[in-house]
Simulated assay, not measured.
Amino acid sequence: MHTETHANEAADWKLIAYGREVSALLSSSNAESWNRELWTMFSGFMLAQSETGHTPNLSNTYFSFKELLEFFEKVERIRRGE
């Protein structure tokens, strides 16, 4: 039981640290700007595929990109209080 308390404290500390990092990241721009920048980066990546050749894990890249967009959409809803 004593060990569980320490585990919870460590988990809480880790969540607080993650929260601080996310807050610092988000304070540099708003969610809409992040989404625009992500689209710019991903579009550039897709255009470069003709020069760089086949990317075997392109579907993983796409889904990671999609998850980032969804993250920023959720953050914007939280910011608006929805």
Rank of each mutant, 00 (worst) to 15 (best):
F45D: 06
L68M: 11
A11D: 13
M41P: 04
Y18K: 09
F71Q: 06
L68G: 08
T5D: 09
F72A: 08
S28C: 03
F72T: 06
M41F: 10
P56R: 01
A7V: 15
N60G: 12
T3K: 14
T55K: 15
F42E: 07
T55I: 15
M1D: 05
F65R: 04
N57P: 10
E73G: 09
E70M: 04
E70N: 09
R79L: 09
T5F: 06
M46H: 00
K74H: 05
F72Q: 05
N8A: 07
I78S: 14
S33R: 10
F65D: 10
T61L: 08
L15D: 02
T5C: 09
N60I: 04
E51A: 13
K66D: 11
F65T: 03
F42W: 10
T55H: 14
K74T: 07
W34I: 07
W34M: 11
E76I: 00
L47I: 14
H6I: 08
S43R: 12
E37H: 06
H6N: 12
T61C: 06
G81D: 11
A7K: 12
N30R: 00
F45T: 10
L47F: 08
D12V: 08
F42K: 15
P56N: 05
G44I: 00
L69R: 07
N30W: 05
K74W: 00
N35K: 02
R77A: 04
V75R: 13
A11R: 11
N35L: 01
F63I: 12
A10H: 05
E51M: 14
F71M: 01
R79W: 10
V22C: 02
E51K: 12
T61R: 04
L25M: 10
D12Q: 11
T55G: 11
Y62P: 12
T55C: 14
K14E: 12
R77W: 02
V75H: 13
I78Q: 14
N8Q: 03
R80T: 15
W34C: 05
R36F: 01
Y18N: 04
E9P: 00
I16W: 03
T40D: 09
E67V: 13
A31Y: 00
S43T: 03
S59C: 15
S33M: 11
S43L: 05
L69Q: 02
